[in-house]
Amino acid sequence: MRSGRLFRDGVATFALLGILSLLASKLNNRPEPVQTGEFYVIDGDTLSANGERLRLKGIDAPEYRQPCRRDGADWACGEEARKALVTIVKTGRPECRGGERDRYGRLLVTCVVGDVDINAALVRTGMALSYGGYAAEERIARQAKLGVWAGDFERPADYRREERGKQSAAGGPMKGLIDYISQSIGWGSHGE
């Protein structure tokens, strides 16, 4: 009798685990949210739609106020990156999809307009760097000396880190704490 109960309990446990496994796989296979419509371009790798910030996945564009150097002179590469994204977004009806969020709560998305992968296009034209994706596109831009690759530039992540350091030093420890809290809840930096 005892061995029968153990067998029954074992079968019930495996059945329950099987059902939980099926449920977990169904939840993991749900379609990613898709956003279409009007987008506001914040900077070269961040959009806004319906009050939500969307971060273009796999790329890192120069910050809006970030300068670069080309032919011995400064140029506003951050502003140009934003303009490049505005131009692409205006060419059609963009569709952005993604399910993950970054540490600032922004939805990480890959966007297309027609057959054009917007994320890839920004990297391929040198207006953004590969950040975990689009390495082939970055090689193309680098070899052709397009965008930021036409001169000297600071990686956007390094630029943001320096700017945070300058702001913290200028405002003392309290300012640094406020900046840290602001960035943690998504009010701060547009990058990363």
Score class of each variant (00 low, 15 high):
R160D: 03
L122T: 07
V112I: 03
D117S: 10
D102I: 06
F153S: 04
F153Y: 15
G114A: 13
W149R: 07
G133S: 15
L107T: 15
Q167A: 08
D102S: 08
W149Y: 12
D117P: 01
G98Q: 14
R103F: 11
A157C: 00
R124L: 11
R106L: 12
T110V: 09
A136Y: 12
R155T: 02
E162L: 07
T125R: 15
A136Q: 15
E163A: 07
I118P: 08
A144V: 09
A135V: 15
A135H: 13
E154K: 13
E162C: 00
G98H: 04
E95A: 12
A170G: 11
Y134R: 09
R160M: 03
D117K: 01
E137W: 03
R142F: 12
E163N: 06
K145H: 13
D158R: 07
M127F: 11
D152W: 11
V109G: 05
G105H: 02
G147T: 04
K166S: 00
A128K: 02
R101Q: 15
R103K: 15
K145F: 02
R142G: 10
I118K: 06
W149I: 05
A144I: 12
V113S: 10
L129K: 00
G105T: 09
G126K: 05
S168V: 09
R124K: 13
R101P: 08
R97W: 05
A136M: 11
R164S: 12
V113W: 03
I118M: 14
D115P: 02
L107E: 13
F153G: 00
G99S: 15
G99P: 10
A150C: 03
V112H: 13
V109W: 11
G147H: 04
Q167N: 08
V113G: 05
S130W: 05
L107H: 11
R161S: 10
D158T: 08
I118S: 10
L107R: 14
I118D: 06
R101C: 08
R164G: 02
Y134A: 06
G147C: 02
V112Y: 11
D158W: 00
R106E: 10
P156D: 04
L129F: 05
R142P: 09
V113Q: 10
V116R: 15
P94L: 06
A157F: 04
G126I: 06
G165R: 07
E100L: 14
D152V: 10
E137K: 03
D117M: 04
V112G: 03
L146V: 07
E154R: 14
V109D: 09
L108G: 05
A169Y: 11
R160C: 00
V123L: 11
D102R: 05
A128V: 00
G132C: 01
D117H: 01
I118W: 03
L107S: 08
G133W: 08
D117R: 09
S168Q: 14
R142N: 10
E137H: 09
S168D: 07
C96V: 04
R164W: 05
R97Y: 08
V116K: 12
E100V: 11
R124I: 06
S168M: 09
I140Q: 10
V123T: 06
K145M: 07
L129A: 01
A121F: 08
M127W: 03
V116Q: 06
Q143W: 13
R106T: 06
R97T: 05
V148P: 00
R101S: 14
G98S: 13
M127K: 12
A170I: 09
I140R: 12
G105P: 04
G132L: 02
R101Y: 13
K166V: 01
A136C: 02
R142T: 10
